[in-house]
Every structure is written in C-alpha cells, then in structure tokens.
Simulated scan of single mutants.
Amino acid sequence: MKSFASFSFFLLFTAIASVQSFTPPTLSSSSLPIFGLGAILFRPKNLSIVLNEGDDQQLVETAKFFTAAFWAGKAGGAAKLSPTQVRSLSNSQIAEFRKRYGGRLLKNKRDAKSEIIICKNSENNQVYGCAGIEVSKISTPNGKSVDFSAPLMSNLAVGKQVRRKGIAEDLVKATEDLARLKWGYNEVYLYVEKQNTPALKLYKKLGYKVQWEDDTATTLIPTAKGNIVTQPTVILCMKKNLGAGFFGRFFD
C-alpha cells in the first residue's frame, strides 16, 4: 500500500509539474491548436482551426454554414429551413459577417480587433464550426450602467454531424486565446438566449458566469410555415475572467 501511495503521489506531482510548465501557444495566421477532452476521442480526421483573416470567400462559406447549423432546429422553430428561409437568412448572415469580420476592415487596419475563427477539414475545406470574437460595446439592460468595450464572443455554431466531439470547446478556447494573447484582454463576454439550454450548459462548464439578463429582447424564429417571425426572448450576458487562469472561474 505504501508503494502504491508513493507511486500515486509521483503521478500527481508529475501532472502538476506539467501544468505549471505549460507555455501558452502563440496564435498564428495559419492554424490554431486544438484543445478539449473531445480532442482525444471520436474526432473528425484532418481537423484544423484557423483565423479567417479577411478571406471573403471563406467568410461567405462560413456564413452559409452558420445559417444551416444555427437557424435550422432553433428552439421553437422549424426543424428544416425552406428555400426562402435559407436564402433570406443566408443573405442576412453574409452581410452581418462581412460587417463584423470583413476583409476591408482587416486589410486596411491590421490591428483591428475583430475575427471569426473557423474549424474545418484541412483537406477538403469542409466547415465544421465557427465562432466570432470582436472588441465591442457591452451594454447592460435598462440603462443600469454606462456602456464599456470588451471582447465579445458570438456566432458560435457546430455542424450537427460533428457535435459532442469537443469542437465547441476548441472554438471557445481559440477565441479566448486570441483575446488574451494577441489583444491583451483578461475577460470575454457573450450573450446567449436563456432558453438555449445546451449553449448555456456549455458556457457554465467552461467558466462563464451570468452577469445580468435582459427580458426585453427579441429573436428571429424560422417557422414550419416557411416564414420568419420575431418573438420575445430573454438574453443572458455572461463573462469569463481569463487573467486568473484555471482558478479564475471561482473568483469572478
């Protein structure tokens, strides 16, 4: 028993030493490291996570992917989008992505703090997931405080065929690393609908905490009748402290 206890302590010490000696990766323009438990098991082959860096063609393809991955099957909406819904939502999504992460902004101002990160197959460029990050105004509801600017993560989506494989965690981690290592921020914010239980569960698991909620918000819902309606919803604002490392989630 004493020998087994000594060996167990050795393993624990080795694991702690490995964590303490870990050096955060430097983000490159070509590829970002993949993290998460899902990176070990059941991952698609040839998986890579990259910065878009103003590539308009890739941006358009990612916007089309997001339309199918996010809007189809949204809570309270149609399980499958009609051609009219696809066309309308895709055009709106492309316009939004170009406005937030577009090439003109990044090419003319290389220090622009706005990017969309894409998970894809490195051989055939099939998009598996995406997440956006930008320094933006963070507004509290009902005029409770003055607006301020901070990294805001949004447009996180993973394709149905590759969900529950750690890709969402990888994308969130990549946005956090971009905000911290390249932009120098120690916190990230996001907005999520309160009824989006899977996303809310994921964010809490990754250390995000609810800051406030807005019960005056609205959202778009693609209906089974083929149209798109506006409905009331509750939006939660969540924040994660990046500067305190692993234990930061306990001290926000």
Rank of each mutant, 00 (worst) to 15 (best):
Pro24Thr: 10
Thr233Pro: 01
Leu27Cys: 05
Pro44Glu: 12
Asp252Lys: 14
Ala68Ile: 11
Thr23Leu: 04
Ser82Lys: 04
Gly226Asn: 09
Pro222Arg: 01
Leu171Glu: 13
Ile133Ala: 03
Leu51Tyr: 07
Glu134Cys: 13
Ser21Lys: 15
Gly248Val: 07
Gln57Trp: 15
Thr230Leu: 14
Asp252Pro: 14
Phe66Ala: 11
Val162Gln: 02
Gly143Asn: 00
Glu123Ile: 15
Ser145Glu: 06
Glu213Tyr: 09
Ala78Asp: 04
Gln85Glu: 04
Lys209Val: 12
Lys64Asp: 00
Gly184Ala: 10
Ala39Lys: 05
Phe65Leu: 06
Ala174Pro: 01
Trp183Lys: 01
Ser8Trp: 13
Leu178Trp: 06
Leu181Pro: 01
Pro198Val: 09
Ile133Asn: 05
Val135Gly: 02
Lys137His: 14
Thr23Ile: 05
Ala179Trp: 04
Ile167His: 04
Val234Asn: 00
Lys165Phe: 13
Ala217Glu: 08
Ile235Pro: 03
Gly38Gln: 05
Lys45Ile: 04
Ala168Asp: 05
Ala63Pro: 03
Leu236Ser: 04
Lys64Ala: 03
Ser145Asp: 10
Asn121Met: 02
Gly207Thr: 00
Phe13Asp: 02
Arg87Cys: 14
Gly245Glu: 01
Val135Thr: 01
Asn241Asp: 09
Gln85Phe: 02
Asn155Lys: 15
Leu202His: 05
Ile116Pro: 07
Gly207Gln: 04
Leu152Gly: 04
Phe251Cys: 14
Asn52Thr: 13
Ile235Leu: 11
Arg104Asn: 08
Lys182Tyr: 07
Val60Gly: 05
Leu106Glu: 00
Ile133Arg: 00
Lys204Phe: 00
Leu59Ser: 00
Thr140Glu: 06
Gly159Ser: 09
Leu106Lys: 04
Phe42Arg: 13
Ile94Lys: 04
Val192Asp: 06
Thr216Ile: 05
Arg110Phe: 13
Lys74Met: 10
Lys182Met: 11
Thr26Asn: 13
Phe35Met: 10
Ala78Thr: 00
Asp56Phe: 11
Phe65Asn: 01
Val229Ser: 10
Glu53Leu: 15
Val229Ala: 11
Lys45Cys: 06
Leu171Ser: 08
Lys120Gly: 03
Arg104Met: 10
Tyr101Thr: 06
Arg163Leu: 04
Asn121Cys: 02
Phe9Lys: 15
Glu169Pro: 01
Gly132Thr: 07
Lys109Gln: 10
Gly245Arg: 02
Leu190Cys: 00
Met238Val: 09
Gln161Trp: 12
Gln231Ile: 14
Lys205Val: 12
Phe10Met: 08
Val234Gln: 06
Ser31Trp: 10
Ile133Asp: 02
Ser18Pro: 05
Asp147Phe: 11
Trp71Asp: 02
Thr223Gly: 00
Pro44Met: 07
Arg180Trp: 10
Tyr185Lys: 03
Gln58Arg: 01
Asn91Gly: 14
Gly36Asp: 03
Asp170Cys: 10
Gly102Thr: 01
Lys99Arg: 05
Thr230Pro: 06
Ser21Phe: 14
Tyr203Met: 00
Phe10Leu: 09
Ser114Asp: 01
Leu41Ser: 07
Val19Met: 07
Asn142Glu: 11
Tyr203Ile: 08
Ala131Thr: 02
Leu200Lys: 08
Thr14Tyr: 08
Val188Gln: 03
Ser8Ile: 15
Arg100Trp: 09
Phe66Leu: 11
Val60Gln: 07
Gln20Glu: 09
Thr26Tyr: 12
Gly77Tyr: 09
Ala15Val: 15
Ala75His: 09
Pro24Lys: 13
Leu12Lys: 12
Ser28Leu: 13
